[in-house]
């Protein structure tokens, strides 16, 4: 029969998908997929720093992701490089630095694959606590900034002219992304996190006539993918993180063929 570790994995995965849905919608609407992926790449440096400083890994990852977004915003104002160039430089520099740093810690047995692709079956009760704390905090804050963020997404200058604190709201949104990415590391790993953000959102699109509905659908679709992927992984003994992403992709493909026409 299914064991405890399986249900912990399920609980953790569902918690991540719950928050990833609505946040992922904004990632899609704001065309920030590459930005999200870049933050996630940085997470590996966070793992290395966490080990080096002997602090909680989730904290290390969250702090590194937040620092990365702050540095990015600063550099965007300083240089004339295009944002995607800047992201490419920073993200891969952080990923590479993380890998180099981890290789120095020879006395520690670190399963690199677990951080790159997730190790959902080792999810502990503490991890679940982190996931639900992070997810519910992100969702609560997202509800608060929802309208402002939507207005900025529609037209940044218009929102600014209407008195919305554009920079603050954008910064808060980036922090939320960093938090969700940090707590998702265990579930799908640094390289696959972005798919949990954007695939459910993209899948929800044809079924949605309002932003809110798309956010809710994205959550549900993500949770469905987590459940499907985990059962499949248990059934066929496949790696759980990639299985979840494959399940999400299959749902997306199905929505392309069977979904209604767009609004």
């Amino acid at each position: 029969m299914l064991d405890d570790f399986f249900w912990r994995a399920m609980l953790g995965g569902l918690g991540v998908a719950l928050a990833a849905g609505p946040l992922g919608c904004f990632v899609v609407w704001r065309r920030m997929a590459y930005f999200g992926a870049s933050i996630a790449h940085t997470a590996l440096l966070g793992v290395a720093l966490g080990f080096l400083l002997a602090i909680d890994l989730t904290m290390g990852i969250a702090a590194t992701c937040i620092a990365f977004s702050l540095i990015l915003v600063l550099l965007q104002r300083q240089t004339k490089l295009a944002t995607d160039t800047l992201l490419g430089i920073l993200a891969h520099a952080a990923l590479a630095t993380g890998l180099v740093a981890l290789s120095f810690m020879k006395d520690m047995r670190i399963d690199l694959m677990a951080y790159l692709f997730g190790d959902i079956l080792s999810v502990s009760a503490t991890d679940i606590l982190w996931i639900y704390a992070g997810s519910s905090l992100s969702l609560a804050v997202l509800v608060v900034i929802w309208r402002a963020l939507l207005a900025i997404t529609v037209h940044e200058e218009l929102a600014r002219a209407e008195g919305i604190p554009v920079d603050t709201v954008q910064m808060v949104f980036t922090l939320l992304l960093a938090i969700v990415i940090a707590v998702s590391m265990k579930i799908v790993g640094a390289l696959l996190i972005i798919s949990l953000l954007i695939i459910p959102a993209a899948t929800a699109r044809p079924f949605s006539r309002s932003p809110e509905r798309m956010a809710v659908f994205a959550s549900l679709i993500g949770m469905f993918a987590v459940a499907g992927g985990l059962f499949a992984s248990f059934q066929w003994d496949t790696p759980s993180g990639p299985s979840i992403v494959v399940a999400a992709f299959l749902l997306f493909a199905a929505s392309l063929f069977f979904g209604p026409k767009r609004l």
């Binding site: 899609v28 609407w29 704001r30 065309r31 309208r147 939507l150 207005a151 997404t153 529609v154 037209h155 200058e157 218009l158 002219a161 209407e162 959102a201 993209a202 699109r205 949605s208 006539r209 309002s210 932003p211 509905r213 798309m214 767009r262 609004l263």
Partner: peptide, 23 residues
């Protein structure tokens, strides 16, 4: 302010009424 144009991502489902509601 009436800007020159909007470039809303096609993936954002937004009716005119909802768009106005934002303001």
């Amino acid at each position: 302010y009436v800007p020159q144009r909007l470039s809303i991502d096609d993936n954002l489902p937004l009716t005119v009424a909802r768009f106005l509601h934002l303001a």
